[in-house]
Nucleic acid binder design. Structure first.
Lengths: 333, 333
DNA sequence: TCCTGACAAGAAAACGTTTTCTCATTTCGA
DNA sequence: TCGAAATGAGAAAACGTTTTCTTGTCAGGA
């Protein structure tokens, strides 16, 4: 059985390879010839070779999605939105997990260049964010979630400072005073949220007590254990992302500390489970699908208009108040 | 600035393109020439064009991962394991979400053929599983999670019937009798778990009461609401995957039914949050990383030995008993 | 009627690599 | 010392498409 390529199809349909190509890509072709081509394609089970197509046409129809860890529910949700939009436009998505590791980031970016991708959606580590901000690539890059100020790349981010401040204000309004903040060390997001937290604390006459935590591992649980051992136990804890929030909740459980009777808890990312633990956990909800969709839209815009000035879309989080922050000394339900 | 390709590098290094190719792919090349090539690569910022490389060498270095929904934590975890192994072997991963939609499945499989992928890891819908079982492809396929019995493809699955039975036995042992099972309609997994559930129920002299639920939407919550309205409210509910378990927990919360005081709850997938709601939820834990790693290993084995008989790896789940199943009428903590 | 422009189809070039083929040089054994 | 085998490098073919270039036909205007 001869290899089935465009030439075989062409021979079978009695036309030239060029005509097959045109027929398959919807260019004007005589109706009868088109029918013959389609018949031949069906008969042979022909599948165009995307590598050859890409080589010649010089477009990959592929985008890269580079995130820290797909298991972080924030990235899971974003990636799903990205994949949906890509699918609708006939694009493939290559998924890359960096584990906040700059070397993996660099190697994946290099890979994207070799793939000649149409574009990349990228959540850089804090460590590499400044370098990324000034790095030029052969493809458009849209930064998500994390981004140093940059005039080179588009970005869609959250108003992190404001979101953190909103959470502090909520806690303050409920009567909490000793509010400890836990922030991710690996992302600019963590830094910005910490900034918002500290500013809001000071504005309200409170003393900030922020800690940066490493990504992964048991850092969060260890830190919470330490906090609980201090003489002046915090009245409330603020966790700056969904993974940390989970870690804090777990650590409190281990320590036998009850939410909200013994301590208040609030965090980021409205994951489904936050509704379920205890009387629910107060969270700032990020518009995850919107972030993904916006990022894809920016990628397309950029492709259409490479010279335009970089844009930055800043989205707002929504505060969802639940039972974990009733105020210190609230009567038990 | 001339386009930087292998020819430019070759000219700059004073060697032939073939030598550059050999030097870059680690084939034996004179040390000094190799050094010159590397220097030229550095100077030009040369990036090999993967499309051209794939076209000529006839291997894509890419695998496809086709799952129902990356937001399902089971698939999230599997995909992460898959990506890790792929990365370690220098392979790219294309991620595909089918939403249990056979048309999307078919189109993604066609896409994989066009990509000439090295292999595909695939969790087919129940509806397509029988067709998949007899479908031949140009690439090896490893089925995960779901699989009709097939002699064509390798598969790594859970011992679903046994896992469901184990859960029933646990509930029975704790004194529950009216145990309702909720199963996913879209997957063979759901069917197998239901089988295990019903067999175990009968064996123990109980009356099975199984319901198949559609994927997505609010089917789960609606169903639970209906169940609670029946005259003989179930003593315990068994949910056959993590998403359903979440739906059940949410529905119970909405209805003001307390776990475990008013009802027992157990399910599949040891997601982090299951430890946190109430006194923890009893679950069957699937070895998710192992599933991903095994699937990749089978893909490699198959590549090395295409003619070998198809294998089927059946993994066991682990029962993790928590506070949600103390037995009916247990004293409250 | 003839010329021009529009259009569709075929022929051939091009995309950027890897691989095969060929040749020259070196190495080893007899 | 000579011939054979082994080695490494260059030339050229090949991978399977799309695109450009060319040619031919047909329609419409002068």
């Amino acid at each position: 059985m001869a290899k089935v390529g465009i030439k075989l199809v062409a021979a079978m349909a009695g036309v030239s390879p060029a005509t097959v190509s045109r027929a398959l890509s919807g260019k004007p072709v005589d109706a009868e010839m088109r029918a013959r081509v389609e018949e031949a394609v069906r008969a042979t089970g022909y599948r165009p070779n995307l590598a050859a197509r890409r080589l010649r046409s010089r477009e990959s129809g592929t985008i890269g999605l580079i995130v820290a860890d797909i298991r972080n529910p924030f990235f899971t949700a974003v990636s799903r939105a990205v994949e949906d939009v890509a699918f609708a436009h006939g694009l493939r998505v290559i998924l890359c997990n960096t584990d906040e590791n700059p070397e993996k980031e660099a190697m994946y970016l290099r890979l994207m260049e070799e793939e000649r991708v149409t574009g990349v959606i990228f959540a850089p580590t804090r460590h590499t964010a400044p370098k990324v901000a000034v790095s030029r690539h052969a493809f458009p890059v849209v930064l998500i979630d994390r981004s140093a100020p940059t005039v080179l790349h588009d970005a869609v981010v959250l108003d992190n400072a404001r979101a953190a401040a909103a959470l502090v204000e909520h806690l303050h309004g409920r009567g909490y005073r000793r509010i400890v903040g836990l922030f991710g060390a690996a992302s600019t997001t963590g830094v910005e949220r910490r900034g918002g937290y500290e500013a809001a604390m000071r504005r309200l006459g409170l003393v900030p007590a922020a800690t940066f935590l490493d990504h992964g591992g048991t850092a969060t649980e260890q830190c919470v254990a330490d906090l609980l051992a201090t003489p002046e136990r915090p009245e409330a804890i603020l966790a700056s992302n969904g993974l940390m929030l989970l870690g804090v909740a777990r650590a409190l459980l281990r320590a036998g500390i009850h939410i909200p009777a013994d301590i208040g808890l609030a965090g980021f990312d409205n994951e489904p489970w936050t509704e379920l633990v205890g009387a629910g956990i107060t969270v700032m909800e990020q518009p995850v699908e919107e972030i993904g969709r916006n990022a894809m839209a920016m990628l397309f815009d950029r492709g259409a208009n490479p010279a335009a000035a970089a844009r930055r879309i800043v989205l707002q989080a929504t505060c969802i108040v639940r039972g974990s922050t009733p105020g210190p000394g609230s009567p038990q339900p």
